[in-house]
Amino acid sequence: MSDTEPATSDVSMPTDRASAPIDPRLLEILVCPITKGPLEYDRAAGELISRRAGLAFPVRDGIPIMLPEEARTLEP
C-alpha cells in the first residue's frame, strides 16, 4: 500500500481540495459514465464536464467522483 510512485509523490501539496490535480493518465481514459462521451476538465473549478449529459463531476483530493448522483447539473 505504501507504493511510492514518482507520479504521485512529486505533487506539491495542494491546500485547496478542488485544486488537487487529476493524474494525467486518468484524463486520457476517463469518459462520461452516462453517455460514454468526452469530458472537459475545468482545472480551476475542479470539475469534469460532460456537455452531452449536462453534468459536472467533482474532483476531490485529485479523485474524480464519477457518480451521477454526486454530479452538478449544468444550466442549459
Binding site: 493518465r25 459514465p33 479523485i63
Partner: peptide, 10 residues
C-alpha cells in the same frame, strides 16, 4: 487506499 491514480465510480 490504492495509492496510485484512482476514480470513484459505480
Amino acid at each position: 487506499l490504492n495509492g496510485g491514480p484512482c476514480v470513484a465510480a459505480d
